[in-house]
Design a protein around this nucleic acid. Structure first.
Lengths: 126, 126
DNA sequence: GGAAGTACCCACATAAATGTAAGTGTAGCG
DNA sequence: CGCTACACTTACATTTATGTGGGTACTTCC
């Protein structure tokens, strides 16, 4: 038996607005600068490292490698390394990855399609 | 007349994967650490500064103020200052804000509801 | 009178994210 | 042979994000 405490109430059910809710961590990964773009790119295609880098324009090798590792550790991306040389590694979304990606894409597409409705003139702070 | 160049193709239609697509900027704002949480909180209620800060647990005054300004400049949040003293300022989403918030919430809710399916053990990198 | 609340801003300091350049080992190509 | 491609990693430098503490001007509550 487990008596529910006030602290528990913050987390059950999970609530991102709660201070140390674990979902915040995943949300950070998914909504990170490159995380979003990688998910979007991989939703279209299974890609190799170099190709993925070409799709996600502007990303450095370092960030691509790092972000892929994070997404993999979350169970959103699957890394398949063929045992050959020179190396050949495929990256693709897991079923879970496709579920998040769909939502991220929905958000991105909305923004892309509503750019003209969004103000951007007096923008000083990034 | 306007002959479409290769560079144009990157931006028309808007594509977040393109290097300097303006939608990336908005995406950053919306998916920023606190931006997401503020949108989620404001989708539930119109809130005053201090109340909003209590909802978005862990945010500092500085970041709250700063992020609100960014979201306001994007046209997602509306700031209504009553001319009284002590100050009374209401923050609420614009119609546009509600549209993005809905998508952000969808993403957040999915994460909250699938925490158990997501791996988190060997997590070293944040 | 003193404390607390309101909605901030500012300067300063630190933490975190990101970029840059170089290196690794092997293979195929001209 | 020399160059390029592949998928990384590591060290170092820089940029960006975020936190902290203090201040403001005024009011209400005790």
């Amino acid at each position: 038996m487990h008596k529910q405490t006030f602290a528990d109430a913050q987390h059950w059910p999970a609530n991102v607005l709660a201070q140390d809710c674990p979902s915040r961590v995943i949300l950070q990964h998914v909504t990170s600068r490159w995380g979003t773009l990688i998910l979007i790119a991989l939703a279209e295609d299974t890609l190799r490292f170099a190709n993925l880098r070409r799709r996600v324009q502007g990303i450095s090798e370092r960030m691509l490698a790092q972000t892929l590792q994070v997404l993999e550790s979350d169970g959103l991306v699957h890394r398949h390394a063929h045992d050959v040389v020179p190396p050949h590694v495929d990256y693709r979304l897991t079923p879970l990855g496709f579920e998040v990606a769909a939502r991220v894409i929905d958000l991105a597409r909305w923004i892309e399609g509503n750019l003209d409705r969004l103000k951007q003139e007096g923008q000083t702070a990034p």
